[in-house]
Design a protein around this nucleic acid. Structure first.
Length: 549
RNA sequence: GCACCCGUAGCUCAGUUGGAUAGAGUAUCAGAUUCCGAUUCUGAGGGUCGCAAGUUCGAAUCUUGUCGGGUGUACCA
């Protein structure tokens, strides 16, 4: 997009000595851009108002009105030129991350655990960032770092041998695994022998015992099959499903690297790397020799760096693991890896559901599939009531229902804790996914009815307030997407989509689009641009854009 | 105890890296469709930006302190 800020700065710096590029700020109320002149008052020994007035008189910028007001130097872009400029650039042509490789670690399903609402955030934030980075031209690598290692799998085998059997497992799949897991935890409290038995089985997985590994692989296959169905519904993609177990035998190589830097110490029988004073040490191996979480994460970090040659590596994980990642990155920095500074913990707030625990152990959880089913049901009901003629209606209900839930999850800044509310997730009015989808469908409907064919636009038609607001929000959409990538924040995209819809719906109610002549042509062109941007943007936040709904 | 995150309208949240009169949605109330899709739009009420100092022309934004909520803090992941 044309860089108005730079144009303003380049001209104004000749008039205002000491002007920084950062002094040119975007403003909404009085103008498009402004320069506050207060900081020049001391140097020039003139009032800010006088400085602004003098500068305004001295400045001439093509296509821009320059005025002084209350000590501000205000710049207003000539609308027709702006509209023309906006229409001259193609959507998604801006590729600032071309040539960069970014690994994104998200979702990380745990074996034998069904998808519940607590997994939603990492999955959709990561899945959306994956699309956003790709849109910016980056080579994104989506990684599902499976939680397929740890003592809980010993528990599962133990439980399966005691209470489960193959037929029931094949028939009930993940439900059976969950039930076994929950039962184990409740019986474990009564019977100490269970714990020891579980440890034994997890040891057997570790040592490669055929029977144990076979069972474990089966559990893993069942879990992945289920997870992939969910990912398909959510429009989530991955390039790799290498999990923790893959890295277990790569820990030794990491230890060699750490040893070469003299970082490994034995403390209280465990192998640790000591870190700065405000952090506990990073535990690499337990005193019994088993590798720990951070050791496998280190191995994964090295593996990704070597195999993908990534410029950046994102971990989309809840905020309660902040210390873990701080430790992980610190170890890499101590090991002298320059790329340690390219690792980012993309943290998000804790999700809670009123009256429910999010711990799988105790059963009582809110399953994502149930939430999605409720949303799809509601969408289907609305369609049946308002648009019974709609073809393909179950497919559309799926897009709208799932879209409502995903959009709700991606609409707020990721750092705040979220109290998941079913009624909010199922809301279709106002700032929601269905609202954006509806606006898109409405655009398509108008375009279809009018038989729109692109042709030459008379830009001055789109300079009225209602149309111009829409144009402004479309013009820098690519930059908004880039800033979402830079801040690891999909909500920047979803919020912009809502703003575009609000402005377009206002425009739609303010003027008649199908009014004939060159007015109709220009307004249809704007409508087409809105529809294309909405469709593109919805894709970035994982939503479908049905043509009709 | 220490570390990190969060406190903005009844509720859910934005706030463009310090700018002009703090904005949306929701809920409530009042309106808009002989015409392009009412899952839409217009209007109204609703605020000591947790609190207190400080920095400066200027603070929701930066600093310090303080209160409240959340999370974590050596052999789980």
């Amino acid at each position: 997009m044309y860089d108005y800020k730079k144009t303003i700065y380049d001209s104004a710096v000749k008039v205002l000595e000491g002007l920084d590029a950062a002094d040119v700020t975007a403003a909404d109320a009085f103008c498009d851009y402004c320069i506050p002149c207060f900081k020049f008052a001391k140097i020039l020994r003139k009032s800010p108002a006088a400085i602004a007035a003098d500068a305004a008189a001295a400045l001439k910028i093509d296509g821009m009105k320059v005025e002084a007001l209350n000590g501000y130097l205000n710049f207003t872009i000539e609308r027709e030129a702006f509209v023309k400029n906006a229409f001259s650039q193609e959507l998604n042509a801006y590729k600032p991350l071309e040539g960069k490789t970014v690994c994104i670690d998200y979702s990380s399903v745990n074996i034998a655990k069904p998808f519940h609402i607590g997994h939603l955030m990492t999955t959709v934030i990561g899945g959306s960032l994956y699309k956003i980075y790709k849109a910016c031209g980056a080579n994104a690598v989506g990684i599902n770092h499976l939680g397929d290692w740890g003592t809980q799998f010993g528990k599962l085998i133990s439980a399966y041998r005691r209470w489960g059997n193959e037929d029931r497992l094949n028939e009930r799949g993940l439900d059976e695994l969950l039930e076994l897991y929950v039962r184990f935890h409740s019986e474990e409290e009564k019977d100490n022998a269970l714990h020891a038995e579980a440890l034994e089985w997890s040891k057997k997985i570790e040592t490669g015992d055929g029977y144990a590994v076979g069972l474990f692989d089966k559990f893993k296959a069942i879990t992945l099959e289920q997870a992939k169905k969910v990912y398909a519904r959510l429009n989530i993609e991955f390039d790799s499903y290498l999990g923790e177990s893959f890295y277990v035998d790569k820990v030794a190589a990491v230890e060699q690297k750490l040893n070469a830097k003299n970082l490994l110490k034995i403390s209280e029988g465990a192998e640790v790397v000591e870190l700065a004073d405000d952090m506990p040490p990073a535990l690499i191996r337990r005193s019994d020799g088993a590798s720990l979480y951070i050791a496998r994460d280190l191995a994964a970090a090295y593996y990704r760096h070597e195999n993908y040659n990534s410029d950046k590596c994102l971990y989309v994980v809840a905020s309660h693991q902040a210390l873990h990642f701080k430790q992980l990155f610190s170890v890499l920095a101590l090991a002298g890896e320059p790329w340690a500074s390219d690792m980012v913990h993309v943290s998000y707030g804790m999700v809670s559901v009123e009256g429910m625990s999010l711990s799988t152990r105790h059963g009582n959880v809110l399953y994502l599939n149930d939430v999605l089913a409720a949303a799809v049901d509601k969408a289907a009901g609305i369609i049946a009531e308002r648009n019974p003629e709609l073809g393909n209606s179950s497919r559309v209900a799926e897009s709208v229902g799932v879209g409502a839930v995903v959009f709700d999850a991606l609409y707020d800044g990721r750092l705040k804790d979220k109290n998941f509310s079913l009624s909010d997730a199922l809301n279709f009015d106002g700032e929601t996914g269905p609202y954006v989808q509806y606006t898109h469908a409405r655009c398509r409907s108008v375009l279809g009815k009018a038989g729109y064919k692109p042709s030459k636009i008379e830009y001055d038609i789109l300079t009225d307030d209602a149309a111009y607001e829409v144009v402004k929000l479309l013009a820098d959409f690519d930059e908004v997407v880039y800033s979402a990538a830079v801040k690891y924040e999909p909500s920047i995209v979803s919020r912009r989509l809502v703003k575009i819809c609000q402005a377009f719906n206002r425009f739609y109610n303010a003027v008649r689009i199908m009014c004939g002549g060159k007015e109709e042509n220009a307004r249809l062109a704007l409508t087409a641009r809105v529809a294309d941007t909405l469709k593109y943007g919805l894709g970035l936040v994982l939503l479908d854009a049905p043509e009709k709904m």
